[in-house]
Simulated scan of single mutants.
Amino acid sequence: MSEKGAVLVIGVGPGLGVAIARTFAEAGHPVALIGRNAAKLKELAARLLDEGHTAQVYPADAASPAELTSALDAAVAGLGAPEALVYNAAYLRPDSPSAVSAQEWADSLAVNVIGATVAAGRVIPAFRDGHGTVLFTGGGFALAPSPDFASLSVGKAALRAYAQALHAEQLDAGVHVTTVTIRGMITPGDERFDPEAIAAAYLELHRRPQEQWQAEYLYA
């Protein structure tokens, strides 16, 4: 087992998700790559393994509490007690507030909010020595809702509220809960909004001493 606790990353794709996993892996943490596309996860994990890191794949749909719980349990069993959880999954589609059906609202909230609550509820009790970090990927639409991305705006606003409540609840227990509210377009090659640059902020938040913990980190 690694001297450092595992980091479980939910919502891993070729952009920010894998950048977060790589950043923590480079810092010496074994990482779990969790997402819907098993083939893509294996491809991304192979790159990390080639770089000499410890990375394992656990396919799961964040919208399915049963799948997500099973994947998280398998990751803890395979990599050891976690030190951090990163919830990076999102249901992203253009839509207007008057044209979202009841089922589409439910589908959005299942990924943007409910999956986050399932993950946190499962992982926090498993944290190494009872202490750890929970990092949620937020977005600027939580602060300035968009009529062109209504369900995502509502989902990120709800996630922000949940994270702030969980932060207050877990603070004295030694668990740092925060939302990384990204106020800009993630763009490879951009000095500020390149996935690797944003991922570095996640690691920095995880390393912060308790007196510097905060419920939200505005990345702008």
Rank of each mutant, 00 (worst) to 15 (best):
G15K: 10
P30L: 14
V31M: 09
P59A: 12
G139D: 14
A157K: 03
E26K: 08
E204D: 13
G121D: 12
A220M: 07
V123D: 02
H53Y: 09
E3Q: 13
L203E: 14
A84M: 11
A74L: 15
V123H: 03
S96P: 01
G140A: 14
M185D: 13
L135K: 01
S151N: 03
A102H: 03
N37R: 14
Y91F: 15
A66H: 05
G121A: 07
T187V: 05
A197F: 11
E191C: 11
P97L: 11
I20W: 03
F141Y: 05
G80C: 08
K42G: 07
A168I: 04
Q214F: 09
E3K: 11
D148T: 14
N37Q: 14
T187S: 06
G174D: 04
P145R: 13
G184M: 06
L16D: 01
L205K: 02
A99G: 08
M1N: 09
K156M: 04
L16T: 03
G80D: 12
V180C: 12
Q212I: 03
F136Q: 10
T181I: 08
A197C: 11
E216M: 07
F193S: 01
A150T: 02
L166C: 02
K42C: 08
R22S: 08
Y162Q: 07
S146P: 06
T69W: 13
F127N: 05
P147H: 15
G189C: 07
V180G: 05
I198D: 00
V86M: 10
T181Q: 14
Y217I: 05
L79V: 12
R122S: 10
V76C: 15
A215D: 15
V154L: 10
D50Y: 02
A102D: 06
A102E: 05
A60D: 11
V100W: 02
P188C: 08
I124H: 00
R192H: 15
A45V: 07
V180E: 04
F136Y: 12
V113M: 07
L171H: 09
P147Y: 12
K156Y: 03
S153C: 08
D148K: 10
E67M: 06
V12M: 09
A90R: 00
P209C: 09
A21C: 10
N88R: 03
L68D: 08
N37I: 08
P188M: 08
S2H: 13
A60W: 07
T69S: 10
H167A: 11
Q170T: 04
A55C: 06
I20T: 07
A81L: 09
S70V: 07
